[in-house]
Amino acid sequence: MNPDEPNTREYFRTKARLSVQYGPYTSQAAEAMMLDEQVWNIQSDIEHRAKTIMDEGAHPESLKPFIDVARWLDFKLDLILHRLRTQEIKKLLPHQVFSFDISGSGVSLEKGPGLEPEKELILAITLPDAPGRPVYARGQVLRTQKDALEKHPCAAVQFSQISETDRERLIHYTFRQQRRELARRAGEADR
């Protein structure tokens, strides 16, 4: 997405209680966010290619034990790397709160330290379908207010930088949430 181009796309907003780590925008935090994004994109590409090979059955049966060991080692390596990255991210993004709602363009957060209007942040949002792979975004606090029920203070954060891959993950999440809510309402109406 071109940063000079205005974002005219509208996004569906859904209620969501997601864990969000955040911290002030710094060049070090931005570099860590970019590095993680590159690592995740490479890993996703490798996993997609490996799945294609496995699904097509283009490998001899004699390689199956080797492939199983390689997949186990890949899983273990992912755990180790995740642990190391989590420790670094906690230093750069020291605060954790929960969201009230989310969309492809921003998030409403519980009020926490440093969430003041016009403050630039780096966010790591944990989605339930991939808790080890956060959605990273740079955002700006637009305003602080009470939530929709007027019970809790919250901060509205608009994303100013987010990869298209992560934005699409958020959009898919909001659509899944919307379908669940519609199914729940339909189930209540049938009673």
Rank of each mutant, 00 (worst) to 15 (best):
K119I: 07
Q43K: 11
D74C: 10
V97R: 06
F159Y: 04
A58F: 01
V107D: 12
E164S: 14
Q140S: 12
A58D: 07
E5G: 08
R17T: 07
A137R: 01
T26W: 01
P6L: 10
L121W: 00
L109A: 12
V97M: 08
A156R: 01
V69S: 13
T126C: 14
E56M: 12
W40V: 06
S27C: 11
A32Y: 01
E168H: 13
D147Y: 05
R71W: 01
I53E: 09
L142P: 00
R49I: 03
G139Y: 00
I122R: 11
T26A: 11
L149P: 02
Q161P: 06
Y136N: 00
S163F: 06
S99F: 02
D45V: 10
R180M: 10
A155L: 08
A186Q: 08
A70C: 06
N2F: 13
A156I: 00
T14V: 12
K76S: 03
P24Q: 06
T126N: 10
V157Y: 02
N2A: 08
A32Q: 02
Q43D: 13
D147T: 02
L77I: 04
D147L: 04
Q87L: 12
Q28N: 13
R13C: 05
G104H: 00
I46R: 01
E31I: 03
D129S: 13
M33V: 03
A156P: 00
T8S: 15
I80H: 08
L73S: 12
G112H: 11
E31M: 06
Y173P: 09
L149I: 10
F66E: 09
H172S: 12
Y22M: 11
A32D: 01
A148L: 07
I67Y: 07
G57N: 14
R85D: 02
R180S: 13
S99A: 11
S19V: 07
Q178S: 09
S44K: 08
D129F: 04
D68R: 09
G23T: 05
R143Q: 05
Y11R: 04
Q145T: 07
M54L: 15
E88C: 03
K64G: 14
N7V: 06
S19I: 02
I102P: 02
L84E: 03
F100E: 14
R9K: 15
T165D: 05
R143T: 02
R184A: 08
A124F: 09
R180G: 03
L81P: 00
R138H: 08
C154Y: 09
L182V: 15
W72P: 09
T52W: 14
Q21L: 07
P3W: 06
P94S: 08
R85L: 06
G106F: 10
F75H: 09
D101K: 08
A148Y: 11
M33F: 03
E118K: 05
I102M: 04
E47R: 14
S62C: 03
S44R: 06
E10D: 09
D190G: 04
R85M: 04
F100T: 13
R13A: 07
R180E: 04
I53F: 15
G132N: 11
Q87P: 09
P6D: 04
E168V: 04
N2I: 05
W72E: 11
S108I: 09
P65I: 06
I125M: 10
P113V: 15
S103Q: 14
L115W: 04
Y136I: 00
T144M: 13
R185P: 07
S103G: 09
A32R: 00
